[in-house]
Write a protein that binds this DNA or RNA. Structure first.
Lengths: 229, 229
DNA sequence: CCAAAAGTGTTGACCGTACACCCATGA
DNA sequence: TCATGGGTGTACGGTCAACACTTTTGG
């Protein structure tokens, strides 16, 4: 029975993570300078190889943890890349994941240790292999998904201002939005709770702080609600 | 250099195809009764293993061709399934593709040879391994994508009537639609050309036949048009 | 005191939705 | 002749988009 499998080929399986962040009104990517061959010294996505005994999701989490030290990060499988010569020396199939990191977690990342740095998505450098293509696919997916679901919130701190939220969507969709219409639309969902706070770190005095009511959101979703930003 | 890879594990890579069709107002799946172990005699998606020297897209096309004899079929990568024990005897990572087949191509398929048969998506039998989960993911994807893009048209003959088109969307979205509003919306896009035809095969006499203007659609898309059915 | 950023409502246009009857055909 | 299925238009309500001024604060 088991012999049945033996006629088939086996492949190396890699994971590559497209790690998004949002800071100072800009959408960013966490990139590393490779310190291993091949392509040592070139800019690259953070990646790794899959081990026996873990699922792809596990492996992606592990790779992200190695770079950032963070757990409980929003991650989602994107696409598999399998072109014959995508890596020069060996046939490697790469499964991509994209991850969304809150800027409030930035300082926890030991970026120097991995030669990692945040770079604006509007100026992505040339990356190794097919990594630029991976980044483009991830950006498209982020845009598409942001239109119908509030995943963008995974990029903001748990408490945020409406101007911050608007900047985020402007960065994702790459277009200016009308302030009054944006506020109206967001607040009309009833999913944003205004926080009573004396915290002055977010914006200037007079700026209202909100949090997202995830519980209420899930209840609405269960009733067939569609966000549609 | 190349030794660098040698510390990593290799995996069997399988392809599984979720093959949709549309006939007599019903959305269907092409399923096979497995004639090989493991799970011989059980219902299953059509699948196969990836070979050295082909990409995943190539392999998916090959698998689909083996079953249906059809080429130039709409196919898209869906998701990778990698649970540790998803197949009982060996660790196999499976990449799923979904395919959309026009009912006018049905008769070209030599279904008996592969123990294949079309079954309604509303009555999917119990399938081997995690194939039911694959089908559910594919259905969700088909729904989501149909809302913004006319991929459903890949399931219809090139010439079709508006009632046919409406039935298709009703089958995909699992809900009744208003006839007049549906027609208005579709025709207002200007993407459907009424054909002058004496062909009586589609519907009854008096039924207008349309075709989709793909060229015009691509032009509109390029200008930022979003279909939004 | 001046520049920059946050807060706040109204209106007109457009789109989505609800809804009923006639005609032709085939059983 | 009757049941089935295809074709057709209007009116109401709601949502989206455009638009300007005041206040506060930090430099």
């Amino acid at each position: 029975m088991v012999d049945y499998y033996k006629t088939y080929s086996k492949f190396y399986l890699a994971l590559d993570c497209i790690i998004f962040g949002f800071d100072k009104g800009e959408l960013k990517l966490l990139l590393i300078k490779r310190n291993i061959s091949p392509m040592k010294g070139k800019w690259s996505l953070m990646g790794g190889f899959m081990d026996i005994g873990e699922t792809l999701d596990d492996a992606a989490k592990r790779v992200l943890f190695q770079l950032t030290g963070l757990t409980k990060i929003y991650m989602e499988q994107l696409k598999v890349f399998s072109e014959l010569n995508r890596e020069p020396d060996e046939r490697v199939i790469s499964v991509t994941y994209y991850a969304l990191i809150r800027s409030s977690d930035y300082n926890k990342i030991n970026a120097e240790k991995h030669n990692a740095s945040w770079q604006s998505v509007s100026e992505v450098p040339e990356l190794v292999f097919d990594h630029n293509q991976m980044v483009n696919e991830a950006l498209e997916k982020l845009k598409r998904k942001s239109r119908s679901q509030p995943i963008g919130l995974e990029l903001l701190p748990h408490k945020f201002s409406l101007p911050q939220l608007q900047q985020l969507y402007e960065a994702i969709f790459q277009q200016k939005l009308d302030k009054r219409n944006f506020r109206k639309k967001m607040l009309s969902t009833g999913l944003f709770k205004r926080e009573v706070t004396s915290d002055q770190q977010i914006g200037r005095n007079g700026t209202f702080i909100y949090s997202f009511d995830k519980k209420k959101y899930n209840e609405l979703i269960a009733k067939g609600f569609v966000l549609d930003i």
